[in-house]
């Protein structure tokens, strides 16, 4: 299993990570080695066909639909990098705004 530099770039975009060109070779090599190792799960005998494990409770347990005060010591304004009038502030949405314009 060999991961190419282009694949690392593509995965980094999906993962919203800014991987520098300098970091590509080592990351590609490490990912290749790890993926080669974990690929041994595909050597499980076909006779061992079972259903995939599904995480989570067997059934959704509903709670009473009651309005309760949020048990927070303080609100999002204290935590957000930028917050005004009840809204989180972010930079321009870039391509989306251009498309709308």
């Amino acid at each position: 299993m060999s991961v190419t530099h282009d694949e690392v770039r593509r995965i980094a975009r999906l993962a919203e990570l800014e991987v520098s060109e300098d970091a590509l070779p080592l990351l590609a090599e490490q990912m290749s080695r790890i993926l080669e190792y974990v690929a041994q799960i595909n050597s499980v005998p076909a006779s061992e066909a079972v259903k995939p494990f599904v995480p989570g409770p067997d059934a959704v347990r509903f709670r009473a639909d009651e309005v309760k005060p949020a048990p927070l010591a303080f609100g999002p304004a204290e935590l957000a990098p930028a917050f005004r009038d009840g809204f989180f502030l972010v930079p321009k949405l870039g391509q989306f705004e251009q498309e709308e314009g």
Binding site: E16, E18, P76, G94
Partner: peptide, 15 residues
């Protein structure tokens, strides 16, 4: 956006 570190950038995806 909501908490933690924010690196400055002019556009949200880059941020």
């Amino acid at each position: 956006v909501r908490y933690g570190l924010r690196a400055p950038a002019a556009e949200v995806a880059t941020m």
